[in-house]
Design a protein around this nucleic acid. Structure first.
Lengths: 348, 348
DNA sequence: TTGAAAGCGCTAACAA
DNA sequence: TTGTTAGCGCTTTCAA
C-alpha cells in the first residue's frame, strides 16, 4: 500500500504538501497540484483513515442504531433510516447503520473515541433506556428519535402524541363515531417499556376522556395474523364499536384484509384509522388505510441536522421537536354505521 | 481521554503490559491483571481504535452495502441483512450497513485500507456492476448476494433460478395449469440491468418452453398499486390464464388484495405463485401467498461465512452457492380453473 | 512474567 | 508557495 511519503517522493514534493493538496487547506501551485495528483493516480494511493484520525483529523460518519432483534428492521424504521441517510449525505457525512445489540455498545463508544464517528442517533427509545444513559455518560453527541421518561437533557425528535390523538378523536367524532376500539401493542403489557406504546396510549385515553368518547382497549402482538382475531373479538365483545384506532401497523393490515375476505366492508361496517402505518404499508390493503402517521422521513433527517448542529456548530443547546403527523383520509374512514356490528355471511 | 500510558502509570506497570492484559496474548500474573483492570475502570479508559489499527491491529467489522436509493431498504433486503448481522455477530464481527451510493464507495475502500473493515458484502447485483469491479481492483475481500454476468472469479451466494423455475412450472402443471402469466419487473425493460430480473425471467421462459407451457408476459413497476391494473389486463387480454407466476413481490400483493375486494377468489379463479415474496410479506394477503422464495436469512448468513473463511482462513478459493428455495404451498394455489377467466360482479 | 522502544501514516504547527 | 517535524495511542519485537 502506497503511503503519503511514497506519493511525495514520486511527485518530488514534501509529505505535507501531499496532505495539503488533498485537503485543500493551503493554496498550492497548479504545477505542484498536477504532479501530486498524477503520483496519487499512478500509485493508486488511498489515504489511511486511521492514521489521519490518530493525528487529529476529523471523521465524517454518524452511527444510527437500528432495531436488530428478532424482527430486525421494521418497515416503519426504514423511513427514518432513509431520511437520516439523505440528510447525512447532504451534509457531507456518512450514515452507518448499526444493528442494535446492547452488548456491542462499547464498540460504538470506541469508534467515537477514535474519531471515526462524531455522534449517534437512537431509535425505538424505551422509557428507561440503557443506551441513552451509556452515551450520556460517555459524552457522545446524540439525538433520539423518541424520548425516555426523563427527556429534559436530550436532543430528540418525537411524535406529538397528544396532537395526533386529538386529531384522530375529533375527526372520528365529526363522522359520528361514538364508540371506539383502540388496538394496542401487546408488548405494552408484557414486555420492555417502549416509549411510544406508553405515550400514545396515554394520549388517546386522555383525549377520549375529554371528548367523552367511550374507548375499548384491545391488545395484540403486532403481526398481520392477529388481525382476524382482533376483528372477531371486536365484533363479539364490542358490537357497538363503529371505529377502530390502531397503534399496531401490522395487526390492522391483517384486520382489513381478512375482514374484506370475510365479507366486511370498510368503512361501511367499520371505520379504521391507523396512527402508525407507513406510506409503503398503506398500499397493503384495499381500500387504503386512512392514517395519521409520523413524517418519518423528515424526522430522521431532522435528527441528523440537530446532531450536526451540536457537533459542528459547537452549539450545546438542546433541541427537541414534536411532530404530530397529518391526517390523510384514504378509504377506510367514513360516517359511523348505525346499529350493531355483526358478522356478514361468509362468502367462502 | 485516558490513554494506555495513563493506565500503565496508575497501575505501576509498563504500557505494553496494559496491552497484553487487554488482548490476552501473554500470560500475566493475577496480581498485575487485577491492578491494571482496576486502573482501567478508575480512569474509564477506552482503547483508541484508530491507534490500534495504525499500529497493526486487526479490525472486526464487515461492511454490507444495502439499497439506498429512492425505495431504500426493501422488505426482501431486510431478511438478508438480518441473517448477515447474526452471522457476523456469531463470529465476533460487527456488520456495518452502508446505504449504497456509488460516489461514496471510495470511503469504504479507505475503511478497508486502514484496517477497520475487513471485507464487504454486496446486494442487488447488476449484470455489469461497477461496485464489483471497483472492489476487485482494490483487492478488497468481497462476497456477492447475487452475481454479475462474469461471476467466475467472485464469491457469491445466489438463487438457483432454474431450480426455482422448474419447481414452479412443474408444481403448477401438476395442478392442471396450462396457461401461465408471468409478471415481470418493468425495470427489466427500462432501467439498469439487475441480475435477478434477467436470470429469473430467462429461467422461467426456458423451463416453460421445455414443458410446452404457454407463457404470457406482463410488465409492471413493482408497487402494490400496480396489482389491480395487472389483474385487469390479465383478465382482459389473457382470459385463458389459470395461474400467475410473480417475480414482483409488491405487485402480487396488490393484485390479490384488490382482486379479493372486487370479488375474485384465489385460487378458485386464479392460482398465484410468487417467487420472491418474503416471509413477512406473506401475511399481507388473505389467503396467504404460496411461494418459492429464497432462504434470504440463510443466504445472508452464508455470505458472511464465506467472506470470513477467505479472510481468516487465508483461503483464496472461490465459493459459489446456489439456493433454489422451497415451495411453500399456502392459500393461493390450487387446481386449474375450467373455462375462461371473467370479471366477477363487483360487490361494491 | 514484564519492560523498552521502534514504528504505523497522518495532521498541523512552525519555519522558511 | 513549500518544507520540517513533533507527536497522536497503539502493537509487537526484542530483551530481560
Amino acid at each position: 500500500m502506497a503511503t503519503r511519503a511514497d506519493v511525495a517522493q514520486r511527485a518530488g514534493v514534501s509529505a505535507s504538501t501531499v496532505s495539503y493538496v488533498l485537503n485543500g487547506q493551503r493554496t498550492i501551485s497548479d504545477a505542484t497540484k498536477v504532479r501530486v495528483m498524477k503520483a496519487i493516480r499512478e500509485l493508486n494511493y488511498r489515504p489511511h483513515l486511521a492514521a489521519g484520525l490518530l493525528a487529529g483529523g476529523k471523521g465524517r460518519a454518524i452511527a444510527m442504531l437500528i432495531p436488530g432483534g428478532k424482527k430486525g428492521i421494521t418497515s416503519s424504521a426504514v423511513e427514518y433510516i432513509n431520511g437520516a441517510t439523505r440528510a447525512a449525505a447532504d451534509n457531507g457525512y456518512h450514515l452507518i447503520l448499526w444493528p442494535n445489540e446492547l452488548e456491542k455498545i462499547e464498540e460504538i463508544a470506541a469508534l467515537n473515541t477514535s474519531g471515526f464517528i462524531v455522534g449517534v442517533v437512537l431509535m425505538e427509545i424505551k422509557m428507561v433506556d440503557q443506551r441513552v444513559e451509556f452515551f450520556e455518560d460517555a459524552e457522545i453527541p446524540m439525538t433520539l428519535i423518541g424520548r425516555t421518561n426523563t427527556p429534559n437533557s436530550f436532543n430528540f425528535v418525537d411524535r406529538d402524541f397528544d396532537g395526533a390523538a386529538q386529531t384522530a378523536i375529533h375527526y372520528l367524532a365529526q363522522l359520528g363515531h361514538k364508540n371506539i376500539a383502540l388496538i394496542n401493542n401487546a408488548r405494552f403489557k408484557t414486555n420492555s417499556k417502549h416509549s411510544v406504546d406508553y405515550r400514545f396510549r396515554q394520549s388517546v385515553i386522555s383525549t377520549a376522556k375529554k371528548a367523552k368518547t367511550p374507548l375499548t382497549h384491545f391488545y395484540y402482538e403486532n403481526d398481520a395474523n392477529t388481525g382476524e382475531l382482533a376483528l372477531n373479538e371486536i365484533v363479539s365483545t364490542s358490537p357497538e364499536t363503529t371505529a377502530i384506532i390502531a397503534l399496531n401497523d401490522l395487526t390492522i393490515i391483517g384486520l382489513i384484509n381478512s375482514g374484506t375476505k370475510n365479507g366486511f366492508s370498510f368503512p361501511r361496517d367499520l371505520s379504521v384509522l391507523s396512527l402508525s402505518t407507513s406510506p409503503s404499508q398503506v398500499e397493503m390493503t384495499v381500500p387504503e388505510i386512512s392514517t395519521i402517521s409520523p413524517p418519518a422521513w423528515e424526522m430522521g433527517a431532522k435528527a441528523i441536522e440537530i446532531l450536526l448542529k451540536n457537533i459542528e456548530g459547537g452549539s450545546t443547546s438542546i433541541k427537541q421537536e414534536l411532530w404530530a403527523g397529518d391526517l390523510i383520509i384514504r378509504g377506510t374512514t367514513g360516517e359511523a354505521r348505525v346499529g350493531k356490528l355483526t358478522f356478514p355471511h361468509l362468502k367462502n
